[in-house]
Nucleic acid binder design. Structure first.
Ligand SMILES: [Mg+2]
Length: 508
DNA sequence: GAGCTCACG
DNA sequence: ACGTACGTGAGCTCC
């Protein structure tokens, strides 16, 4: 037996306790069964998701009151083995403590049924990576560079001098001192020049419109077009899917972050010849979860009607027929629907709708009269968070709060919604991965309410059925759940996939 | 490394 | 009693 085989044999016979590296073990095929692994980082994450960092040194101090030994520089063989075995002993000691704590707080289920199996799914997503059209990035880079040079020249001319356009400090000097524009909002260190401020300054000076365009283009160029190709290896980027980072239960993604790619840049993520990309996204999942958690009759019924939820909301709130709901009314309802998910108050709504706080209050009151169950749910959630010190999702994931005041009130309202949506798509991912285990196709990206898969053309019909079914039935909400499926040769240009009368899929 | 800004859901 | 909409990651400037 070589070392690899020895290690594999031990792991699958005795089990292994690891941290943060369960994905690596799966990648190396070192683990043949999930229950051969206990990942202390994932356990610690479920126990304290707001911690952000579940390093062994933190866990060791917290649960064992023991420092985590650091490796000396240029260690001797003895020092090395001493340190490593000390570290291993810490892992070993953490295992029973974390396991018992998971059970005590009823987090064992979500650990064993969702998070642990998910870590192997994420491992496979990392291994597969995403194919990148480097030519697209090259050409787009050239085009944006030219476009930016045009903005720069005109901006310098209007400013009467050259300056560093990427420096908010210098820009603020130009706008508010040199050109004398009104100061709208301040930051900790000076005067804000953010997009919201610039939009208000547009009528004052023609430089502002150019600045907005420059900012938008420069963002795309610097963050995406220039940075992404640096991370391509053998034609693919392999993001790291972070499973123990967010306070709510969502995933995050780094190097590169594939969860904030703008539509224009999505074109650069492509399928190989004879493959397509398939994207399936939940429709209004967070609001459906609000309907489910609150049990509000009217909100549930609104979804059962399968009409546009914002239009329906506007009609109910304003007491008018849906045919009379115009753009403005729908926009207002959409704002409140979103606002609810974020725990927004009258002040926030008034600012976003450009109306008075009094009017915003009227709308919110009318909204809660329409959906009284939602109002009750919000109040109960905040009360529970205060009394128990945590909020809970549909699968029992918890987020802890020390005292629920200020911004924490809103976070406490949002956490069960955002977290339940995360629970749901995670379950879907585990089930889809299982259903695709004997296929060539596989998942490559998750963006909170969207899954992207790389699919061979011959598997398209079957895979799209699996994805849609597993996403919609991942967790039973008692409210209809709908996913829309799109297909294309790249992530940017996709067409809706519809079922025709023969049950066959076709591209429109 | 902090602060600002901004991309996504 | 609210610094007044939640959750992320990353590039850039400046100290
Ligand atoms: Mg969606």
């Amino acid at each position: 037996m070589n070392n690899y085989e020895k290690i594999k044999e031990v792991i699958n016979r005795s089990g292994i306790i690891a941290t943060d590296v369960s994905k690596e073990l799966f990648k190396l095929s070192l683990s043949e069964r999930e229950n051969a692994i206990f990942d202390v980082a994932i356990a610690s994450y479920l126990l304290e998701p707001s911690l952000g960092n579940h390093s062994l040194s933190k866990m060791s101090l917290k649960y064992l009151s023991r420092p985590f030994p650091s490796l000396p520089k240029n260690p001797s063989e003895d020092e090395l083995s001493g340190c490593v075995s000390l570290r291993a002993s810490i892992l070993l000691a953490l295992y029973p403590i974390l396991k018992e704590e998971l059970d005590r707080r009823e987090l064992g289920r979500i650990y064993y049924n969702v998070e642990l199996p998910l870590s192997s799914v994420l491992a496979r997503m990392e291994e597969r990576g995403v194919l990148v059209d480097t030519e697209f990035f090259k050409e787009e880079g050239k085009r944006l560079k030219k476009e930016l040079q045009g903005y720069e020249e005109r901006i310098y001319k209007l400013a009467g001098m050259k300056f560093n356009l990427n420096s908010p400090k210098q820009l603020s000097y130009i706008l508010f001192e040199k050109l004398g524009l009104p100061k709208i909002k301040r930051t900790k260190t000076g005067v804000s020049t953010n997009q919201e401020v610039l939009e208000k300054l547009v009528p004052y000076h023609e430089i502002v419109e150019l600045l907005l365009q420059y900012r938008e283009t420069e963002k795309i160029r610097s963050t995406y077009i220039d940075a992404l190709p640096e991370l391509v290896e053998n034609g693919r980027v392999r993001t790291k899917w972070c499973q123990t980072t967010t306070a709510t239960g969502r995933l995050s993604s780094i190097k590169p972050n594939l969860q904030n790619i703008p539509p224009t840049v999505r074109e650069g993520f492509v399928a190989p010849p004879d493959w397509v990309l398939l994207s399936s996204d939940y429709s209004q999942i967070e609001l459906r979860i609000v309907a489910s958690l609150s049990g509000d009759k009217n909100l549930k019924e609104a979804f059962e009607r399968n009409e546009d939820i914002h239009t329906r909301t506007a009609a109910l709130v304003l007491g008018i027929p849906e045919e009379l709901v115009g753009k403005k009314e729908r926009e207002m309802a959409k704002m409140i629907n979103f606002g609810i998910i974020y725990g927004m108050g009258a002040y926030g709504l008034s600012r976003r709708l450009g109306i008075s706080v009094e009017d915003a209050n009227l709308f919110i009151n009318a909204y809660f009269r329409t959906y009284p169950g939602v109002k009750e749910w919000v109040e109960n959630t905040v009360r529970e968070a205060t009394e128990k010190g945590y909020t809970t999702t549909i699968l029992g994931r918890k987020r802890y709060f020390e005292s629920v005041k200020g911004a924490d009130i809103r976070a406490a309202i949002n956490a069960p919604v955002q977290g339940s949506a995360a629970d749901m798509i995670k379950v879907a991912m585990v089930n889809i991965d299982k259903a695709l285990s004997n296929k060539k196709s596989g998942m490559i990206i998750q963006v909170h309410d969207e899954l992207v898969l790389e699919v061979t053309e011959d598997e398209l019909t079957e895979v799209s059925d699996i994805v849609k079914r597993e996403m919609e039935r991942a967790v039973s909400l008692g409210v209809p759940v709908v996913c829309d499926i799109k297909v294309g040769k790249n992530w940017g240009r996709m067409e809706k996939l519809e079922k025709n009368s023969h049950g066959l899929h076709r591209l429109n």
